[in-house]
């Protein structure tokens, strides 16, 4: 079983958060799974961790449509942060709007992190959702 240090789930839908948490259980062991209702509290927590020198999450599950700060706005801010490692960001959306997919390709090209694009519904967390090194090798 994959050992992951820290995971963020950023989604305003409690059912999805519940689902992801549930699906993570058989896929990985992680003592630090955090849920956020939208991008803003997640970003604030991330900044706090960087300031305090606590390790930032290895994997982020990110919804797009959220109030206050949506997934794209979070990503725009996120990629400017000075994070010393490659974070896997799984974009989880029910959107089939081609402009969302396009945006993802755009951001992916200018970002050092590993971005996945996943359409709902999810039934299972794949190993590639948690570890980019396998994919890259």
């Amino acid at each position: 079983m994959k050992k992951v240090n820290s995971i963020y789930i950023i989604d305003d839908d409690p059912i999805t958060v519940f689902g992801i948490k549930k699906m993570l259980r058989p896929a990985a062991t992680c003592d630090d799974v955090q849920g956020f209702e939208n991008g803003l509290p997640a970003l604030n927590d991330l900044k706090r961790r960087l300031e305090e020198g606590i390790s930032v999450p290895d994997v982020i599950f990110l919804d797009i449509n959220m109030p206050i700060m949506d997934g794209w706005d979070f990503l725009e801010e996120f990629i400017t942060l000075d994070i010393p490692k490659k974070v896997i960001v799984n974009i989880i959306t029910s959107s089939i709007d081609p402009s969302d997919y396009q945006k993802w390709t755009e951001i992916r090209s200018k970002c050092q992190h590993h971005l996945n694009f996943k359409n709902k519904p999810l039934f299972k967390i794949e190993p590639s959702d948690l570890d980019a090194i396998d994919m890259a090798s």
Binding site: D13, S95, I96, P121, F123
Partner: peptide, 21 residues
């Protein structure tokens, strides 16, 4: 159309997921 599909999809996706569970 996108709004409709998105909003309906997000709910149906939840149904599917929960039913699977």
């Amino acid at each position: 159309a996108h709004i409709v599909s998105h909003n309906l999809r997000s709910h149906t996706a939840n149904f599917s997921m929960l039913l699977e569970f």
